[in-house]
Amino acid sequence: MSGRGDSEISETRKERSETPEGDHAEVPADAETLDDVQNPAGDGEDPAEDTEDPAEDTEDPADDEEDLDDPAQVARRARWTAAVTGVLLALAGLAASTLRATGSAPALVPAAYGLGAAVCALAAFLGSRGRTRRALWLLVTGVMVMALGDQFD
């Protein structure tokens, strides 16, 4: 779309119907409008309109985009995601630490799970305060500590 108005588009269509020498193309004598010249069958349909635009049938997508593009909404969603993910990983680390401590694993394994869980809990706290980038890196670090501790088993 070039941003032209309707009047400029109709002028452009008229210019296209002319030959390069400036002579007009053959126009049927009963053609009343430019559409009749382009579609001499006169069935009232423009051949370019055969394809349907699915966006015309749906509701205005700008309403949904306003909610998604709102910076406050995006920040709130990031905080919730960081906090919930941190809490879930911390709980998983604590559960794994407890299970490994009751088993015959070396003491380093449950300690690694506990340390990873503590790092994830710190990430959840920072994420809830809006420090989502730091929370992401702490979540990655916490999971890596847990995975490293699992290698000692």
Rank of each mutant, 00 (worst) to 15 (best):
S2C: 07
S2P: 11
S10Y: 15
R13L: 15
R16A: 15
S17H: 12
T19A: 13
D23K: 14
A29E: 14
D30E: 15
D36P: 04
G42H: 09
G44D: 06
D46V: 06
P47Q: 05
E49L: 14
T51A: 13
E52H: 03
D53H: 05
D53P: 01
A55W: 13
E59M: 11
P61D: 12
D63H: 09
E65W: 10
D67H: 12
L68C: 06
D69N: 15
D69R: 15
D70Q: 11
A72K: 10
A72H: 09
Q73M: 05
Q73V: 09
R76Y: 07
R77E: 11
R79N: 14
R79F: 07
T81E: 02
V87Y: 00
A90D: 04
A90K: 00
A92V: 02
L94A: 13
A95S: 15
A95Q: 11
S97G: 15
S97Y: 00
S97A: 15
T98D: 07
T102H: 09
T102L: 14
S104G: 10
A107T: 13
L115S: 00
A118M: 01
V119L: 05
A121G: 15
L122W: 08
L126H: 00
G127S: 05
G130E: 10
T132Q: 03
L136I: 03
L139D: 01
G142S: 05
G142T: 02
V145Q: 03
M146P: 03
A147C: 05
G149A: 09
Q151Y: 12
